[in-house]
Write a protein that binds this DNA or RNA. Sequence first.
DNA 1: TAAACATATGAACAACTGTTCATATGTTTA
DNA 2: TAAACATATGAACAGTTGTTCATATGTTTA
Lengths: 116, 116
Amino acid sequence: MSDKNEKKTDCAHEPIEEVSAKMPAEELLYDMADLFKIFGDCTRIKIICALFESELCVNHIAELLSMTQSAISHQLRVLKSARLVKVRREGKTVYYSLADDHIKTIFDQGLEHICE
Amino acid sequence: MSDKNEKKTDCAHEPIEEVSAKMPAEELLYDMADLFKIFGDCTRIKIICALFESELCVNHIAELLSMTQSAISHQLRVLKSARLVKVRREGKTVYYSLADDHIKTIFDQGLEHICE
DNA sequence: TAAACATATGAACAACTGTTCATATGTTTA
DNA sequence: TAAACATATGAACAGTTGTTCATATGTTTA
């Protein structure tokens, strides 16, 4: 018999064509990776974690994490461009807070996975 | 008055000492970042996503993602060392599958956040 | 045992990332 | 308006990361 869809290796699992058909769109998976990439840095995780408690201004986040104002500002920009934080200006100071509740859920899920 | 705990900037938010007290341990946050770092790569996300459907062998994952066997093997090692996948050998072929259900939950939360 | 097959791995390299430093922008106060 | 304060930003640099290439390890079959 000449099966054109024959696999190189003979594995006992579901045909890869079927798996392939069930995969989300390539672009969506890219966006997923990009989202998790944001959470994949300790400084940003700390910032997010701090913002769970309270809206904060840049200087205080820097003070809290014992880091440079510049470093924090750069990271806040990353978080902002990913729509994870929102900004509110009041005179000289700029207040940052979390954009929505999904962030907390994702954080908590990660936490649960770690603590097992 | 000489308030030793005075803040450099006078913001209207919760004192940073209180925020600081509520933060999880430094090490835990590092582990969190490390976990999300794994999800923060498109190749690994795709592998994880494929394994949602079925246990798979290395060659087929490579075929599915149109990538080198070597590249996939390297990434599987990363996933394995983070205990996200488990291994089962059967003769020549090695089958990979997801280690637990938390992975699916984290993935789905990310998906939800994206689709909004 | 030799050949074929399936996977793993080390070295190398390019691309990406996070911090620092210097400085710019924007706001308030004296 | 000048000075002080709060934040943002560009360039540079070191450290990290993902892929490739060549090759090694491990398993089965002829």
